[in-house]
Every structure is written in C-alpha cells, then in structure tokens.
C-alpha cells in the first residue's frame, strides 16, 4: 500500500514517458522506434542545455556558499533559532516572485538602472549592464544565489555548533595557526565535508529550476527543465517524444545522483548530520 502511494505516481509517470518516447503510446505512436532518443542524444542543444544547467546550478551554489562562509566569518555569533528571523524570510518568497523582483531591480529599466541614471553613470537603459536575459545565465545565478544564501548560512551555522568548530579553531590558534589559516584549513574543510550531501541536493534543485530561468533567462541557451517544456510541444506535438526521452534521461541522472547523495549521508556519522 505505502509503496504504491509513494512510488506509484513516479513509476506511472516514468512508464508513460518511456512508452511515449519509443512510440508505443500517444498521438504519434507508430510502433517501437528509438528515433526520439537518437534525436535527443544527437542534438547539440541537449548537451548545451545540460552543461548550462550544471553551470547555473554550480555557480548559484558556489556564490551562495562563499557568501554564507563570508557572513559566518564576519559574524561569529550564532544565528537566531526562532523561525521569524531575517534568515528565514526567503522561505516566504516563491521563485516566481524572486524572478519578478530580479527583473524589477536588475532589468535595463529597473530600479538600479534608474538609480545609475540619477547618479549620471548611464544615459540610456541599454548602457546599464543588466544580467537579466544574459546568455551567461548571470541573472538566474544572482537570483538563485540570493534565495539560497540564507539557507546556507543557517546550515553552516548549525554544523559549526554541532562540530564545536569554535573550540577546534581555538585549538588550531593555540598550536600557532593564524586566524585565516585556522579558518581555511580547519573550519571550511570540516563544514564542506559534512554539508556535502545537502549541498548535492541543493545543486540538483538549482540545476533543475524552472520558474526563475523562465522569467530571467535568455531564450538560448536554456536550462534543461525549460528545454523539456519547449520540446513537450505546446504548439508542435511532433517533438513530444523527444521531450519524454530528455525528461527520462534527466530523471535517471537525478535518481542516481540523489541515491549517491543519500548513501554519502547515511555513511556520515550521525552527529555530523543536520
């Protein structure tokens, strides 16, 4: 019963995608064919989307990790444990609202561009170096990093307390390490090691984001999730089998990665888990 409730919808979804992608069901079914899979695997855009998704996920996570480490370095006092703190506020921000806010602040005619004009730094909207719709994905990266940063601050803060890193820091300094050496050689490696499984899940979630890339991303290159929706054929049904093939490939990759992350987590000593 519980297996059916938990795994049933996922299995049903995967089975339909597989059957549709090999031509066994659906409006375009003409018997078993792997043409859609071959097209997806041969298509340069598939691999560009995959690389772009990984880049955006890694960059968003990297920037927010650096930001969280910087905040903890500058603010050694523990983060408040109440749920209503500045750290918890991003929980209240849906991705759609984050995307819209990014457009209103960072767009060519956004609040920062108007401020830059008022300060005499630019003369036209086009002069403003807006990251919105950038082909490098900078707008997506900045928006996602801003949303994730507070979560990582709380995560690193909790891990610091669990590991009693303050005491280890002091021990390193007593043994002659400079503050920066103690930070980089003791605190940061321990933090990153114990946070690795959670960071892995964050990476997957950031790489598979949909709403923010849809609002702030360029039309090309696109993230994998956006590519899947494009192929699922809102207007052209002929590419739908490719959408299912790509979605299945992506799901398989995520399933394997999350199994590895989970294995890493269970192999982590219980006291190190968050």
């Amino acid at each position: 019963m519980i297996w059916a409730l938990v795994g049933g919808p996922l299995l049903l979804s995967a089975a339909f995608m597989l059957a549709y992608s090999v031509g066994l069901t659906g409006l375009l079914a003409h018997g078993l064919s792997f043409a859609a899979w071959a097209t997806v695997l041969d298509d340069r855009v598939t691999w560009i989307s995959l690389g772009f998704s990984c880049w955006v996920g890694a960059a968003s996570l990297g920037i927010s990790m650096l930001g969280a480490l910087a905040v903890l370095a500058l603010r050694p006092a523990p983060v408040a444990r109440s749920m209503l703190t500045p750290w918890s506020l991003p929980i209240a921000v849906p991705p759609m609202v984050a995307g819209l806010s990014a457009v209103l602040w960072l767009g060519n005619a956004g609040a920062l561009a108007r401020a830059a004009y008022a300060l005499g730094w630019i003369r036209r909207p086009a002069d403003f170096p807006s990251p919105i719709y950038s082909t490098s994905g900078l707008g997506i990266i900045v928006t996602q990093a801003a949303l994730v940063l507070p979560f990582l601050i709380v995560l690193f803060d909790r891990l610091s307390r669990v590991h009693r890193l303050g005491a280890l820091d002091e021990a390193a300094r007593t043994l002659g390490a400079s503050p920066s050496l103690a930070w980089w050689r003791v605190r940061v490696p321990l933090l990153l090691r114990s946070a690795a499984p959670t960071l892995g899940i964050y990476f997957l979630a950031l790489s598979g984001a949909f709403e923010i890339p849809l609002l702030v991303g360029a039309s090309y290159p696109t993230m994998l999730s956006v590519r899947v929706v494009q192929l699922s054929g809102r207007f052209d049904l002929s590419t739908r089998p490719q959408a299912y093939a790509l979605a299945l490939l992506y799901a398989l990759g995520v399933a394997v990665s999350s199994a590895v992350a989970r294995r890493l987590r269970t192999s982590t000593p219980r006291t190190e888990r968050i």
């Binding site: 919808p9 996922l10 049903l12 979804s13 995967a14 339909f16 995608m17 549709y20 069901t25 659906g26 899940i201 997957l204 979630a205 598979g208 984001a209 949909f210 994998l224 999730s225 899947v228 929706v229 699922s232 959408a243 299912y244 979605a247 992506y250 799901a251 995520v254 399933a255 990665s257 999350s258």
Partner: peptide, 14 residues
C-alpha cells in the same frame, strides 16, 4: 530532487 517540470511532463499524458 527532480524538477517538478519532469513530474508534470510525465503525468501530463496519463
């Protein structure tokens, strides 16, 4: 861990 898009695309036809 999966993007909800993948779940949605998978469920759409059924």
């Amino acid at each position: 861990a999966l993007s909800p898009v993948v779940l949605g695309v998978g469920l759409e036809y059924s």
